[in-house]
Design a protein around this nucleic acid. Structure first.
Length: 449
RNA sequence: GACUCGGUAGCUCAAUGGCAGAGCAACUGACUUUUAAUCAGUGGGUUGUGGGUUCGAGUCCCACCCGGGUCACCA
Protein backbone atom coordinates (compact mmCIF):
# COMPACT_ATOMS: atom_id res chain seq x y z
CA UNK A 1 0.00 0.00 0.00
CA UNK A 2 1.24 3.48 -0.89
CA UNK A 3 -0.20 6.73 0.40
CA UNK A 4 0.69 10.39 0.01
CA UNK A 5 -0.05 13.44 2.06
CA UNK A 6 1.13 16.18 4.35
CA UNK A 7 2.84 15.28 7.61
CA UNK A 8 0.58 16.76 10.27
CA UNK A 9 1.95 15.21 13.44
CA UNK A 10 4.77 12.97 14.61
CA UNK A 11 5.76 11.15 17.76
CA UNK A 12 9.31 9.88 17.93
CA UNK A 13 9.94 6.95 20.30
CA UNK A 14 13.60 6.55 20.95
CA UNK A 15 16.21 6.13 18.27
CA UNK A 16 14.41 3.35 16.52
CA UNK A 17 10.72 4.11 15.92
CA UNK A 18 8.26 6.91 15.15
CA UNK A 19 4.57 7.39 14.66
CA UNK A 20 3.32 10.07 12.33
CA UNK A 21 0.11 11.14 10.64
CA UNK A 22 -0.25 11.88 6.96
CA UNK A 23 -3.24 13.88 5.82
CA UNK A 24 -4.69 14.15 2.34
CA UNK A 25 -8.02 15.41 1.06
CA UNK A 26 -9.83 12.35 2.40
CA UNK A 27 -8.50 12.45 5.94
CA UNK A 28 -5.54 11.43 8.04
CA UNK A 29 -3.79 8.09 8.26
CA UNK A 30 -1.20 6.92 10.77
CA UNK A 31 2.30 5.81 9.81
CA UNK A 32 4.55 3.60 11.88
CA UNK A 33 8.22 3.93 11.01
CA UNK A 34 10.74 1.50 12.48
CA UNK A 35 14.45 1.58 11.90
CA UNK A 36 14.57 -2.19 11.42
CA UNK A 37 11.95 -2.02 8.65
CA UNK A 38 13.12 1.15 6.92
CA UNK A 39 16.87 0.70 7.21
CA UNK A 40 19.34 2.72 9.26
CA UNK A 41 19.99 5.51 6.78
CA UNK A 42 16.41 6.24 5.64
CA UNK A 43 15.19 6.18 9.24
CA UNK A 44 17.95 8.52 10.39
CA UNK A 45 17.06 10.89 7.56
CA UNK A 46 13.41 10.79 8.52
CA UNK A 47 14.37 11.83 12.01
CA UNK A 48 16.80 14.50 10.88
CA UNK A 49 15.27 16.01 7.77
CA UNK A 50 11.52 15.46 7.64
CA UNK A 51 9.45 18.23 9.25
CA UNK A 52 5.82 18.84 9.97
CA UNK A 53 3.99 20.12 6.86
CA UNK A 54 6.30 18.27 4.46
CA UNK A 55 4.55 16.25 1.78
CA UNK A 56 5.70 12.66 1.63
CA UNK A 57 4.84 9.41 -0.02
CA UNK A 58 4.92 6.25 2.12
CA UNK A 59 4.82 2.59 1.12
CA UNK A 60 4.37 -0.29 3.53
CA UNK A 61 2.10 -2.91 4.98
CA UNK A 62 -1.20 -2.16 6.73
CA UNK A 63 -1.41 -3.13 10.38
CA UNK A 64 -3.30 -2.27 13.53
CA UNK A 65 -1.83 -0.89 16.72
CA UNK A 66 -2.66 -2.16 20.19
CA UNK A 67 -5.43 0.36 20.43
CA UNK A 68 -6.77 -0.85 17.09
CA UNK A 69 -5.89 2.15 14.95
CA UNK A 70 -5.33 1.35 11.27
CA UNK A 71 -1.71 2.12 10.55
CA UNK A 72 0.79 1.77 7.73
CA UNK A 73 4.03 0.13 8.77
CA UNK A 74 6.40 1.93 6.44
CA UNK A 75 9.10 0.14 4.46
CA UNK A 76 9.91 3.03 2.15
CA UNK A 77 9.15 6.73 2.01
CA UNK A 78 9.95 9.64 -0.26
CA UNK A 79 9.94 13.38 0.33
CA UNK A 80 7.59 14.92 -2.26
CA UNK A 81 7.97 18.54 -1.22
CA UNK A 82 9.53 20.46 1.59
CA UNK A 83 7.91 22.94 3.96
CA UNK A 84 10.09 25.76 5.21
CA UNK A 85 7.59 27.37 7.57
CA UNK A 86 6.32 25.18 10.39
CA UNK A 87 2.55 24.89 10.96
CA UNK A 88 0.80 26.76 13.80
CA UNK A 89 0.18 25.28 17.24
CA UNK A 90 -1.04 21.72 16.81
CA UNK A 91 -3.64 22.02 19.55
CA UNK A 92 -4.87 25.63 19.44
CA UNK A 93 -4.36 26.07 15.71
CA UNK A 94 -4.97 29.58 14.41
CA UNK A 95 -7.78 31.62 15.90
CA UNK A 96 -6.63 35.15 15.11
CA UNK A 97 -9.26 36.43 12.69
CA UNK A 98 -6.82 38.59 10.79
CA UNK A 99 -4.50 35.65 10.10
CA UNK A 100 -7.41 33.45 9.13
CA UNK A 101 -8.54 35.99 6.51
CA UNK A 102 -5.15 37.18 5.31
CA UNK A 103 -3.57 33.74 5.16
CA UNK A 104 -6.59 31.62 4.41
CA UNK A 105 -4.31 28.78 3.33
CA UNK A 106 -3.15 28.50 6.94
CA UNK A 107 -6.73 28.53 8.20
CA UNK A 108 -7.66 25.79 5.73
CA UNK A 109 -4.54 23.78 6.55
CA UNK A 110 -5.27 23.77 10.26
CA UNK A 111 -9.01 24.13 10.75
CA UNK A 112 -11.12 21.25 9.51
CA UNK A 113 -14.27 23.24 10.19
CA UNK A 114 -13.13 25.95 7.75
CA UNK A 115 -12.36 23.38 5.07
CA UNK A 116 -15.79 21.79 5.52
CA UNK A 117 -17.54 25.14 5.29
CA UNK A 118 -16.05 25.89 1.89
CA UNK A 119 -16.79 22.40 0.64
CA UNK A 120 -20.41 23.04 1.61
CA UNK A 121 -20.34 26.33 -0.28
CA UNK A 122 -19.27 24.56 -3.44
CA UNK A 123 -21.86 21.83 -2.97
CA UNK A 124 -24.63 24.40 -2.59
CA UNK A 125 -23.63 26.06 -5.86
CA UNK A 126 -23.36 22.81 -7.77
CA UNK A 127 -26.72 21.63 -6.39
CA UNK A 128 -28.21 24.89 -7.62
CA UNK A 129 -26.67 24.40 -11.06
CA UNK A 130 -27.99 20.86 -11.26
CA UNK A 131 -31.47 22.01 -10.29
CA UNK A 132 -31.54 24.81 -12.87
CA UNK A 133 -29.98 22.71 -15.62
CA UNK A 134 -32.62 20.04 -15.01
CA UNK A 135 -35.32 22.71 -15.37
CA UNK A 136 -33.99 23.57 -18.80
CA UNK A 137 -32.14 26.75 -17.89
CA UNK A 138 -29.15 27.71 -20.00
CA UNK A 139 -26.11 28.93 -18.08
CA UNK A 140 -24.62 31.97 -19.83
CA UNK A 141 -21.86 34.51 -19.35
CA UNK A 142 -22.30 38.26 -19.62
CA UNK A 143 -19.75 41.06 -19.27
CA UNK A 144 -18.14 41.94 -15.95
CA UNK A 145 -16.76 45.12 -17.48
CA UNK A 146 -19.66 47.24 -18.65
CA UNK A 147 -19.76 50.63 -20.36
CA UNK A 148 -22.86 51.44 -18.31
CA UNK A 149 -23.86 49.83 -15.04
CA UNK A 150 -27.40 48.98 -14.04
CA UNK A 151 -29.80 46.41 -12.69
CA UNK A 152 -29.42 47.46 -9.07
CA UNK A 153 -29.14 50.52 -6.88
CA UNK A 154 -25.49 50.79 -5.96
CA UNK A 155 -22.31 52.74 -6.45
CA UNK A 156 -20.02 51.01 -8.97
CA UNK A 157 -16.28 50.45 -9.17
CA UNK A 158 -14.89 52.47 -12.08
CA UNK A 159 -12.04 51.42 -14.31
CA UNK A 160 -10.29 52.34 -17.52
CA UNK A 161 -10.60 50.14 -20.58
CA UNK A 162 -7.35 50.97 -22.42
CA UNK A 163 -8.07 49.15 -25.69
CA UNK A 164 -11.36 50.99 -26.04
CA UNK A 165 -10.05 54.21 -24.50
CA UNK A 166 -13.17 54.52 -22.41
CA UNK A 167 -14.37 54.45 -18.81
CA UNK A 168 -15.96 51.15 -17.84
CA UNK A 169 -17.67 49.89 -14.69
CA UNK A 170 -17.48 46.59 -12.88
CA UNK A 171 -20.95 45.11 -12.97
CA UNK A 172 -23.27 45.74 -10.04
CA UNK A 173 -25.71 43.22 -11.56
CA UNK A 174 -26.10 41.20 -14.74
CA UNK A 175 -29.86 41.73 -14.93
CA UNK A 176 -30.05 43.98 -17.98
CA UNK A 177 -27.80 41.71 -20.06
CA UNK A 178 -29.73 38.57 -19.13
CA UNK A 179 -33.00 40.20 -20.11
CA UNK A 180 -31.47 41.20 -23.46
CA UNK A 181 -30.98 37.46 -23.93
CA UNK A 182 -34.67 36.88 -23.26
CA UNK A 183 -35.40 39.48 -25.95
CA UNK A 184 -33.03 37.53 -28.20
CA UNK A 185 -35.09 34.38 -27.82
CA UNK A 186 -33.48 32.37 -25.04
CA UNK A 187 -36.36 31.39 -22.80
CA UNK A 188 -34.58 30.29 -19.63
CA UNK A 189 -31.17 31.71 -18.74
CA UNK A 190 -29.11 32.02 -15.58
CA UNK A 191 -25.69 33.19 -14.55
CA UNK A 192 -23.72 32.70 -11.36
CA UNK A 193 -21.14 35.44 -11.09
CA UNK A 194 -19.46 38.08 -8.98
CA UNK A 195 -21.08 41.47 -8.67
CA UNK A 196 -19.14 44.47 -7.40
CA UNK A 197 -20.62 47.28 -5.37
CA UNK A 198 -18.39 50.07 -4.15
CA UNK A 199 -19.91 50.28 -0.69
CA UNK A 200 -19.26 49.54 2.94
CA UNK A 201 -18.03 46.26 4.35
CA UNK A 202 -19.71 44.69 7.35
CA UNK A 203 -20.85 41.31 8.63
CA UNK A 204 -23.53 41.06 5.93
CA UNK A 205 -21.96 42.99 3.02
CA UNK A 206 -18.93 42.33 0.90
CA UNK A 207 -18.19 44.72 -2.00
CA UNK A 208 -17.37 41.67 -4.12
CA UNK A 209 -20.05 39.02 -3.78
CA UNK A 210 -21.61 36.17 -5.69
CA UNK A 211 -25.04 36.32 -7.21
CA UNK A 212 -27.22 33.92 -9.12
CA UNK A 213 -29.66 35.60 -11.46
CA UNK A 214 -32.18 33.81 -13.63
CA UNK A 215 -34.88 34.83 -16.09
CA UNK A 216 -37.73 32.70 -17.37
CA UNK A 217 -39.93 33.67 -20.31
CA UNK A 218 -43.70 33.21 -20.11
CA UNK A 219 -43.45 33.27 -16.33
CA UNK A 220 -44.34 35.76 -13.64
CA UNK A 221 -43.33 36.24 -10.03
CA UNK A 222 -45.68 33.50 -8.86
CA UNK A 223 -43.92 31.00 -11.11
CA UNK A 224 -40.65 32.19 -9.62
CA UNK A 225 -41.93 31.75 -6.05
CA UNK A 226 -42.60 28.10 -6.79
CA UNK A 227 -39.18 27.77 -8.38
CA UNK A 228 -37.43 29.31 -5.37
CA UNK A 229 -39.09 27.12 -2.76
CA UNK A 230 -38.45 24.00 -4.82
CA UNK A 231 -34.85 24.95 -5.55
CA UNK A 232 -33.89 25.79 -1.95
CA UNK A 233 -35.63 22.63 -0.77
CA UNK A 234 -33.73 20.55 -3.34
CA UNK A 235 -30.42 22.14 -2.35
CA UNK A 236 -31.05 21.36 1.32
CA UNK A 237 -31.86 17.74 0.54
CA UNK A 238 -28.70 17.39 -1.50
CA UNK A 239 -26.32 19.25 0.78
CA UNK A 240 -27.73 18.40 4.20
CA UNK A 241 -29.70 15.25 3.49
CA UNK A 242 -32.79 16.76 5.11
CA UNK A 243 -35.10 19.69 4.31
CA UNK A 244 -34.01 21.82 7.26
CA UNK A 245 -31.43 24.39 8.20
CA UNK A 246 -30.31 25.49 11.64
CA UNK A 247 -29.05 29.01 12.14
CA UNK A 248 -28.20 30.61 15.44
CA UNK A 249 -29.83 27.76 17.33
CA UNK A 250 -33.12 27.96 15.44
CA UNK A 251 -34.20 25.27 13.00
CA UNK A 252 -36.65 25.76 10.15
CA UNK A 253 -38.11 23.39 7.58
CA UNK A 254 -37.82 24.33 3.92
CA UNK A 255 -40.49 22.03 2.54
CA UNK A 256 -42.78 23.82 0.05
CA UNK A 257 -45.12 25.59 0.00
CA UNK A 258 -43.68 28.53 1.91
CA UNK A 259 -45.86 31.19 3.52
CA UNK A 260 -46.85 34.07 1.26
CA UNK A 261 -47.57 37.43 2.85
CA UNK A 262 -48.20 40.75 1.14
CA UNK A 263 -45.80 43.50 2.11
CA UNK A 264 -48.74 45.74 2.99
CA UNK A 265 -50.41 43.09 5.19
CA UNK A 266 -47.16 42.18 6.91
CA UNK A 267 -46.45 45.78 7.86
CA UNK A 268 -50.04 46.39 8.91
CA UNK A 269 -50.05 43.24 11.03
CA UNK A 270 -46.83 43.93 12.91
CA UNK A 271 -46.77 47.71 13.09
CA UNK A 272 -50.43 48.66 12.72
CA UNK A 273 -49.53 51.06 9.90
CA UNK A 274 -51.32 50.67 6.55
CA UNK A 275 -48.99 52.51 4.21
CA UNK A 276 -51.30 52.11 1.20
CA UNK A 277 -53.87 54.22 3.00
CA UNK A 278 -51.25 56.92 3.67
CA UNK A 279 -49.93 58.08 0.28
CA UNK A 280 -48.81 61.42 1.71
CA UNK A 281 -45.28 61.34 3.09
CA UNK A 282 -46.15 63.49 6.10
CA UNK A 283 -49.03 61.21 7.14
CA UNK A 284 -46.99 58.06 6.72
CA UNK A 285 -44.15 59.57 8.69
CA UNK A 286 -46.49 60.51 11.55
CA UNK A 287 -48.06 57.04 11.63
CA UNK A 288 -44.67 55.29 11.52
CA UNK A 289 -43.24 57.48 14.26
CA UNK A 290 -46.32 56.84 16.41
CA UNK A 291 -46.07 53.07 15.87
CA UNK A 292 -42.42 53.21 16.87
CA UNK A 293 -43.23 55.02 20.08
CA UNK A 294 -46.09 52.63 20.95
CA UNK A 295 -44.01 49.50 20.51
CA UNK A 296 -40.82 51.01 21.89
CA UNK A 297 -38.98 50.46 18.58
CA UNK A 298 -36.35 52.83 17.31
CA UNK A 299 -37.08 53.69 13.68
CA UNK A 300 -34.32 55.31 11.71
CA UNK A 301 -36.45 58.00 10.06
CA UNK A 302 -36.68 61.76 10.12
CA UNK A 303 -39.47 64.10 8.96
CA UNK A 304 -37.56 64.36 5.68
CA UNK A 305 -37.27 60.63 4.98
CA UNK A 306 -38.78 59.81 1.60
CA UNK A 307 -41.96 57.72 1.46
CA UNK A 308 -40.46 54.46 0.13
CA UNK A 309 -37.65 54.61 2.71
CA UNK A 310 -40.22 54.84 5.50
CA UNK A 311 -41.98 51.74 4.15
CA UNK A 312 -38.67 49.94 4.01
CA UNK A 313 -37.84 51.02 7.55
CA UNK A 314 -41.23 49.84 8.82
CA UNK A 315 -40.58 46.49 7.21
CA UNK A 316 -37.06 46.15 8.59
CA UNK A 317 -37.98 47.19 12.10
CA UNK A 318 -41.35 45.57 12.68
CA UNK A 319 -41.62 42.67 10.26
CA UNK A 320 -38.25 41.19 9.36
CA UNK A 321 -37.16 40.09 12.83
CA UNK A 322 -40.45 38.20 13.18
CA UNK A 323 -40.16 36.23 9.95
CA UNK A 324 -38.52 32.99 10.97
CA UNK A 325 -40.10 30.31 8.78
CA UNK A 326 -39.37 30.54 5.03
CA UNK A 327 -41.71 33.23 3.74
CA UNK A 328 -42.32 35.19 0.56
CA UNK A 329 -43.05 38.85 1.19
CA UNK A 330 -44.68 40.12 -2.00
CA UNK A 331 -46.19 43.14 -3.76
CA UNK A 332 -43.83 46.04 -3.16
CA UNK A 333 -44.37 49.78 -3.60
CA UNK A 334 -43.44 50.82 -7.13
CA UNK A 335 -41.00 53.50 -6.06
CA UNK A 336 -38.55 50.90 -4.74
CA UNK A 337 -38.37 48.85 -7.95
CA UNK A 338 -37.64 50.62 -11.26
CA UNK A 339 -37.28 47.36 -13.24
CA UNK A 340 -40.35 45.51 -11.95
CA UNK A 341 -43.71 45.23 -13.66
CA UNK A 342 -46.68 46.95 -12.08
CA UNK A 343 -49.67 45.04 -10.75
CA UNK A 344 -52.53 45.20 -13.23
CA UNK A 345 -54.81 48.05 -12.26
CA UNK A 346 -52.62 49.25 -9.39
CA UNK A 347 -49.88 51.73 -10.37
CA UNK A 348 -48.62 51.99 -6.77
CA UNK A 349 -47.61 48.34 -6.52
CA UNK A 350 -45.25 46.06 -8.44
CA UNK A 351 -45.16 42.29 -8.76
CA UNK A 352 -42.09 41.76 -6.67
CA UNK A 353 -41.16 39.45 -3.79
CA UNK A 354 -38.31 38.64 -1.50
CA UNK A 355 -37.75 35.21 0.05
CA UNK A 356 -36.97 35.46 3.77
CA UNK A 357 -35.57 32.72 5.95
CA UNK A 358 -34.85 33.27 9.63
CA UNK A 359 -35.04 37.03 9.15
CA UNK A 360 -32.52 37.00 6.33
CA UNK A 361 -33.34 38.19 2.80
CA UNK A 362 -31.83 35.64 0.50
CA UNK A 363 -32.96 37.13 -2.79
CA UNK A 364 -35.13 39.40 -4.80
CA UNK A 365 -37.53 38.63 -7.64
CA UNK A 366 -40.18 40.15 -9.81
CA UNK A 367 -42.26 40.01 -12.91
CA UNK A 368 -40.01 41.90 -15.30
CA UNK A 369 -41.10 45.23 -16.68
CA UNK A 370 -41.19 44.62 -20.44
CA UNK A 371 -42.91 47.79 -21.63
CA UNK A 372 -40.18 49.96 -23.24
CA UNK A 373 -42.05 53.24 -22.76
CA UNK A 374 -42.82 52.56 -19.13
CA UNK A 375 -39.20 51.46 -18.62
CA UNK A 376 -37.90 54.68 -20.16
CA UNK A 377 -40.16 56.70 -17.88
CA UNK A 378 -38.89 54.82 -14.82
CA UNK A 379 -35.29 55.37 -15.93
CA UNK A 380 -35.99 59.08 -16.28
CA UNK A 381 -37.36 59.15 -12.76
CA UNK A 382 -34.13 57.51 -11.57
CA UNK A 383 -32.21 60.06 -13.53
CA UNK A 384 -34.01 62.86 -11.69
CA UNK A 385 -33.15 61.25 -8.32
CA UNK A 386 -29.60 61.06 -9.55
CA UNK A 387 -29.52 64.72 -10.42
CA UNK A 388 -30.95 65.39 -6.95
CA UNK A 389 -27.91 63.69 -5.44
CA UNK A 390 -28.90 60.02 -5.14
CA UNK A 391 -25.62 58.40 -6.20
CA UNK A 392 -27.22 54.99 -6.35
CA UNK A 393 -30.00 55.80 -8.74
CA UNK A 394 -29.63 53.97 -12.05
CA UNK A 395 -28.35 55.70 -15.16
CA UNK A 396 -30.54 55.52 -18.26
CA UNK A 397 -29.64 52.52 -20.40
CA UNK A 398 -30.83 53.55 -23.88
CA UNK A 399 -29.73 50.31 -25.48
CA UNK A 400 -31.71 48.29 -22.97
CA UNK A 401 -34.81 50.30 -23.82
CA UNK A 402 -34.05 49.77 -27.50
CA UNK A 403 -33.93 46.02 -26.82
CA UNK A 404 -37.33 46.12 -25.11
CA UNK A 405 -38.73 47.89 -28.19
CA UNK A 406 -38.08 44.71 -30.14
CA UNK A 407 -40.46 42.98 -27.74
CA UNK A 408 -39.74 40.98 -24.61
CA UNK A 409 -42.06 38.16 -23.60
CA UNK A 410 -43.61 38.27 -20.15
CA UNK A 411 -40.76 37.18 -17.91
CA UNK A 412 -40.11 36.30 -14.31
CA UNK A 413 -36.69 37.07 -12.83
CA UNK A 414 -34.80 36.19 -9.70
CA UNK A 415 -31.59 37.09 -7.92
CA UNK A 416 -30.22 34.96 -5.09
CA UNK A 417 -27.35 36.18 -2.94
CA UNK A 418 -25.15 33.09 -2.84
CA UNK A 419 -23.02 34.26 0.07
CA UNK A 420 -26.06 34.91 2.27
CA UNK A 421 -27.51 31.55 1.31
CA UNK A 422 -24.24 29.86 2.26
CA UNK A 423 -24.24 31.74 5.57
CA UNK A 424 -27.66 30.28 6.35
CA UNK A 425 -26.67 26.76 5.39
CA UNK A 426 -23.38 26.83 7.32
CA UNK A 427 -24.64 28.77 10.38
CA UNK A 428 -22.15 31.58 9.82
CA UNK A 429 -22.97 35.10 10.90
CA UNK A 430 -20.21 36.95 9.03
CA UNK A 431 -20.05 37.02 5.23
CA UNK A 432 -16.22 37.02 5.42
CA UNK A 433 -16.43 33.51 6.81
CA UNK A 434 -18.03 32.15 3.64
CA UNK A 435 -15.67 33.99 1.26
CA UNK A 436 -12.30 32.34 0.79
CA UNK A 437 -10.30 35.53 0.42
CA UNK A 438 -12.24 38.47 1.85
CA UNK A 439 -10.92 41.92 0.97
CA UNK A 440 -8.64 43.44 3.60
CA UNK A 441 -6.58 46.58 3.72
CA UNK A 442 -2.89 46.26 2.91
CA UNK A 443 -1.25 45.07 6.11
CA UNK A 444 1.74 47.43 5.75
CA UNK A 445 -0.64 50.37 5.71
CA UNK A 446 0.97 51.82 2.60
CA UNK A 447 -1.04 52.85 -0.40
CA UNK A 448 -0.36 50.46 -3.26
CA UNK A 449 -0.20 53.08 -5.94
C1' G B 1 -17.07 57.72 8.89
C1' A B 2 -18.28 57.48 14.72
C1' C B 3 -17.79 54.67 19.08
C1' U B 4 -15.57 50.46 21.26
C1' C B 5 -12.29 46.17 22.07
C1' G B 6 -7.78 44.17 20.60
C1' G B 7 -2.36 43.80 18.34
C1' U B 8 3.52 40.62 23.33
C1' A B 9 8.20 34.44 20.56
C1' G B 10 6.23 30.76 14.40
C1' C B 11 1.06 29.53 17.05
C1' U B 12 -2.24 30.01 21.72
C1' C B 13 -1.84 33.17 25.76
C1' A B 14 0.42 35.54 30.71
C1' A B 15 2.98 39.79 32.90
C1' U B 16 0.35 46.49 40.30
C1' G B 17 4.70 51.65 36.16
C1' G B 18 10.13 47.91 38.49
C1' C B 19 14.82 41.72 35.44
C1' A B 20 9.34 40.13 29.14
C1' G B 21 7.23 34.63 30.79
C1' A B 22 4.44 29.68 29.99
C1' G B 23 2.48 25.73 26.79
C1' C B 24 2.89 24.01 21.82
C1' A B 25 6.45 24.36 17.65
C1' A B 26 12.06 24.43 16.81
C1' C B 27 16.94 22.48 18.48
C1' U B 28 19.97 18.67 21.84
C1' G B 29 19.49 14.15 24.63
C1' A B 30 16.49 9.46 26.84
C1' C B 31 12.69 5.90 25.47
C1' U B 32 10.73 0.26 19.49
C1' U B 33 2.66 0.30 19.68
C1' U B 34 2.42 6.27 20.29
C1' U B 35 -1.80 9.31 19.08
C1' A B 36 -2.45 16.86 22.63
C1' A B 37 3.02 10.66 23.56
C1' U B 38 6.23 11.24 27.99
C1' C B 39 10.86 13.00 30.48
C1' A B 40 15.46 16.30 30.81
C1' G B 41 17.79 20.47 28.64
C1' U B 42 18.81 24.77 24.87
C1' G B 43 17.87 28.78 21.76
C1' G B 44 14.05 32.12 20.41
C1' G B 45 11.41 39.26 21.45
C1' U B 46 12.43 46.53 17.79
C1' U B 47 5.80 44.02 23.06
C1' G B 48 1.88 47.00 15.55
C1' U B 49 4.62 52.09 14.20
C1' G B 50 6.29 57.01 15.72
C1' G B 51 6.48 60.54 19.50
C1' G B 52 5.80 61.99 24.79
C1' U B 53 5.53 61.61 30.46
C1' U B 54 8.81 59.09 34.08
C1' C B 55 14.78 57.50 37.64
C1' G B 56 12.29 53.48 34.96
C1' A B 57 6.87 52.15 29.93
C1' G B 58 4.27 45.89 27.25
C1' U B 59 1.63 48.81 31.07
C1' C B 60 0.24 55.93 31.40
C1' C B 61 -0.58 60.13 27.40
C1' C B 62 -0.81 61.73 21.95
C1' A B 63 -0.81 60.56 16.74
C1' C B 64 -0.88 56.91 13.12
C1' C B 65 -1.31 51.61 11.04
C1' C B 66 -3.99 46.79 11.01
C1' G B 67 -8.07 43.73 12.63
C1' G B 68 -12.85 42.46 15.37
C1' G B 69 -17.65 44.27 17.25
C1' U B 70 -21.70 47.98 17.36
C1' C B 71 -23.79 51.94 14.76
C1' A B 72 -24.08 54.87 10.30
C1' C B 73 -23.86 53.94 5.03
C1' C B 74 -25.62 49.98 1.97
C1' A B 75 -33.43 48.94 -0.31
Amino acid sequence: MTIVGRLVSRRDMGKNASFANLRDGSGAFQLYLRRDRLGDEPYAQFRALIDLSDFIQATGTPMRTRSGEPTLEVTEYRLLSKALTPPPDKWHGVTDTETRYRQRYVDLMVNEETRQRFVTRTRIISAMRRFLDAQGFLEVETPSLQPLYGGAAARPFTTRYNALDQTFYLRIADELYLKRLIVGGFERVYEICKDYRNEGIDAKHSPEFTMMELYQAYADYETIMRLVEEMIHAIALEVRGEPTITFGGRTVTLTPPWRRVKMRDAIAEWSGVDYAALPEQANLYAAAAAAGREQGKDLDITPGTVWPRIVDELFKTFVRPNIVEPTFIYDYPTALSPLAKGKPGDPTTVERFQPLILGSEIGNAYSELNDPQEQLARFREQSRDRAAGDEEAMPIDEDYVAALRYGMPPTGGLGIGIDRLVMLFTDQHAIRDVILFPALRNSDGKASD
